[in-house]
């Protein structure tokens, strides 16, 4: 047990990842608002649908604003709560807009002491119905004050992503673990070329095998995620997806190469050479080229992946351990594969 504590650690971390990652609720948020196209000068009642919200269980009043920019906003005139996730909010929209544009977009802000402040950014559009110069009359300057904060653990509520934000702990973390395993495999290949010990070759092969397995799992989880958010399992437009498919092809070719040799020594040497060469070719594939091209996928073309509101502190508390957990379990599986491989080669020698 003293020697194998890291296996237990890996399992514990993964159990933590699954329970925390799947059970911690999302922050309350605004799912939709209807109608979303408004005209200036009219009196409207918006039906607001919340997600994970507790509109009726609050002590303080629910407050709501339509916000144009940091200096212009209006508060709601009447609020009627239907149930925990549904509310009717009425506004008197001023007859003029403080902007030159015919149409402007606005955000809806809702606040109460249970759910904290929620924003539905730029979902509302307001059309100017009268044809005069911009005028800020009726719009008050920054009335949005004393906002509440949601306490307790929760994951960010992000439009489009919603609950699938939890896939970060599986899709992204599996990729990180895969990269770590493949690097370990390359290190063992280098070791083999220095000392020509069969053990290093077997280790390198086992790490590559588990790395490839994690890569496939990463593609499957990513594919399901893409279906949910982009509406398709696979798109050839996405450079990152193509590059990962190619990376998998490279490693599948590695196994074909291995199987085409009868002589163990020769196989070990040439597999090590190919493994290092392929990894060097992989670096531009997954680290350089995706960053040069534009894409929808996070981490491309200036599209942030891990920062800002996509990965907040609560998520970090699961995200970083998950990488370690997947890596430890990956190393454990590779160790088992390595032992099987060593036994197989021993049997073949007799």
């Amino acid at each position: 047990m003293r020697k194998n504590w890291w296996k237990a650690l890996g399992v514990v971390i993964l159990i933590y990842t699954y329970t925390a990652g799947l059970l911690i609720p999302l922050k309350p948020g605004i799912l939709s608002v209807n109608p979303s196209n408004l005209n200036s000068g009219e009196e409207v009642t918006l039906t607001v649908i919340g997600y994970n919200t507790f509109f009726t269980k609050t002590e303080s009043e629910l407050r709501a604003w339509i916000k144009l920019d940091n200096e212009h906003a209006i508060s709601a005139t009447k609020i009627e709560l239907v149930n925990d996730t549904k509310a009717h909010v009425s506004f008197n929209i001023p007859s003029n807009l403080p902007t030159e544009d015919k149409v402007t977009d606005a955000s809806l802000v809702i606040d109460n002491d249970q759910d904290g402040a929620m924003v539905l950014p730029s979902k509302l559009t307001i059309k100017k119905t009268i044809d005069v110069n911009p005028n800020a009359e009726g719009w008050t300057n920054a009335p949005i004050t004393d906002l509440n904060r949601k306490t307790g653990f929760s994951f960010p509520f992000r439009g489009i992503l919603y609950e699938t934000i939890r896939n970060t702990y599986f899709h992204v973390c599996l990729w990180f673990a895969m990269i770590i395993l493949l690097i370990t495999s390359v290190v063992h290949s280098f070791k083999y070329l220095r000392n020509f010990r069969m053990e290093d070759d077997q280790k390198s092969m086992s790490f590559t095998m588990v790395g490839t397995l994690f890569g496939m799992l990463g593609i499957i989880t990513g594919s399901i995620w893409a279906k949910d958010t982009w509406g398709t399992y696979w798109t050839w437009e996405e450079v990152k997806l193509n590059m990962t498919a190619i990376a998998l092809l490279i490693y599948l070719a590695y196994f074909v190469l291995r199987s085409s040799f009868d002589d163990y020594e020769k196989r070990a040497r040439i597999a090590a050479v190919y493994n290092i060469f392929a990894f060097a070719a992989l670096i531009p594939l997954i680290f350089v080229i995706p960053r040069l091209t534009d894409s929808l996928h996070p981490g491309n073309g200036g599209n942030p992946a891990m920062g800002g509101e996509d990965l907040d502190n609560t998520m970090r508390m699961v995200f970083y351990p998950a990488i370690i957990g997947w890596t430890l379990v990956g190393v454990w599986i590779s160790q088992i594969v390595f032992r099987i491989q060593r036994l197989k080669e021993k049997i073949m020698e007799f």
Binding site: M243, I246, A247, L249, I250, A253, F277, A281
Partner: peptide, 12 residues
Amino acid sequence: LMAILSFPIIIP
């Protein structure tokens, strides 16, 4: 082998 080893590497 020539084709399967080199084509993925040549793609970038």
